[in-house]
Nucleic acid binder design. Sequence first.
DNA 1: TTCATACTTCGATCGTAACCGAAGCATTGC
DNA 2: GCAATGCTTCGGTTACGATCGAAGTATGAA
Lengths: 230, 230
Amino acid sequence: MKEGPDIAQIGALIGDPARANMLTVLMGGRALTATELAGAAGITLSTASSHLAKLEAGGLVSQRKQGRHRYFALADDEVGLMLEGLMGFAAHRGFLRARPGPKDPALRKARVCYNHLAGDFGVRMLDRLVADGHVAIDGDDAALTAEGEAKMAGIGIDVTGLRSQRRPVCRTCLDWSERRSHLAGSLGEALLSRFIEMGWARRSEDSRAIRFTPKGERQFLDLFPQPERR
Amino acid sequence: MKEGPDIAQIGALIGDPARANMLTVLMGGRALTATELAGAAGITLSTASSHLAKLEAGGLVSQRKQGRHRYFALADDEVGLMLEGLMGFAAHRGFLRARPGPKDPALRKARVCYNHLAGDFGVRMLDRLVADGHVAIDGDDAALTAEGEAKMAGIGIDVTGLRSQRRPVCRTCLDWSERRSHLAGSLGEALLSRFIEMGWARRSEDSRAIRFTPKGERQFLDLFPQPERR
DNA sequence: TTCATACTTCGATCGTAACCGAAGCATTGC
DNA sequence: GCAATGCTTCGGTTACGATCGAAGTATGAA
C-alpha cells in the first residue's frame, strides 16, 4: 500500500471486453463514430456511449465533434504504444481473441499501429534505417541522423516540419507479431502517410492490415532493401 | 473483429485493485508468501489466495513451494517489463494511487505494513535509528550497525537469530502516508512483535491500525525520542 | 501422536458495473 | 417551422466477481 502509479485504473479500463474491442479497433488509426464503435464491439449505442465516456475520462481516447458526428480516436501516440506493448505481451502468452483467421498473415506482413507501419514490413524498415545509419537507436530512444534526414527529404518528408511539433520525431514501438521494434513517432506516421499518398499501399477497410500494391511493394523494397532471407 | 491479441483478459487481471497492489509489491522483485501479499493488499488470506490463483492461471505470477510456505513472484522478466510499461504510462498520466482518505487518522499514525510498523510512528522510528547511527542506509539497502545491535539487544531482540533467517534483517519500505521510508525486514517485524509482546501496542481487530496504549506510547517515545515538532 | 502454521476450497453475501430501452438534447436538412 | 440523425443521460435489471468466515488440506514442529 505504497504511493506509486495506479495500474489498476488503467487495467480496469482495458479489462472490459467491450472497451478492449473498441481500443483494438481504434489501433487501426482511424477516427470512428460512436455508432461504428458500438457495432464493432457488439453493444448498443447507449452502452458504447457510456464506455466511451469512461475511456475519455481516463485519457485513453479523445473525441472531435464534426457536425452531428463525434469522431473518437486514441488520445495520442503514448496510448498506442502502451496498447501495442500490452498486445505484444498478450500475443506471446497466447491470449488471442480467436483462432488466427485468414487475415492473420496479412496482418503479420504489414499493418497499421495507430498511425505508423507495423508488422514484418515495419520491422524491416527500421532495421534497414538503422543498418544504413539513418536512424540511431539508443536504448528506447531513437534519433534521425543527418544522412537519415537527407533520405527522408528524398522520399518527400519535411523533417524540419516534424521537429517543430511537440511530439517526438522518432520512437521505437515493440511489434507484437515480430517481437522486435518498428518505427513510431511523427516520422513513423509521416512515412506511412507518404506510402499511402504515393499509392504504394492502402489501408484495409475492415482490419488493421495494410495492403501494398505489387508496384508499391517493389518500390518499398527498393527504398529499404532487405538482406538475403536466412 | 476476431483476430489479434486479447488485451481484455490481461487488463481485467490487472484491473482489480487488490491484484494490482499485489503485482506492484511483487515488482520489488522479492518472492512473497500469500500471507504477506494479503497484508500488502489489505485483504484476507482467502481472498488473496483466490486472486493469486487467477494471476497464476493468467501466467503473471508463479509460485514456488518451500516447506509450508508458498512464495509468489512475478512469472518472468516479461511480466515485469509489461507492468513497468503500464506504470510508466500511468505515472505520466497522473494515475497515482489515491491516498486512502484520512478517514482513519489512526492508520496514518501507526499501522502494520506486512508485518512491521508503518505510518508516522514507523517513519519516526527509522529516522531516529538512522540519526543515532544504529541503522545505516545506503540507497534502498539498510544495515544494522554494531551500536544498533546493542540497542536491539537492550530491547530484547536477538539479532543473531534474525540473521540466521533467509530474509533480510533490515529493509526500507516507502510509506504511502508519509512519503518517507520506514523499517521493514525481519528486524522491522521483530520490533513490532516486541512492542505488542510488551503490551505497548496492539493490532486493531478490524483494520491495519496499530493502537498504542498511553504507557506504551510514552515508552516508545522514550526509546525513540523525537526532535521538536517543526 | 498432537498441535501449529500456511494455504486452499467452499458457500454465501453483497456491491458494482455492464447492459438495454426510452427519453432527452443537439445538429442538420427539408 | 418540422422531421431525421447522432449521441447522451436516466432508470431499472441483472450478472459477475470480490469479499469473508469457516472448514478442509498439507507441511513442519513438539
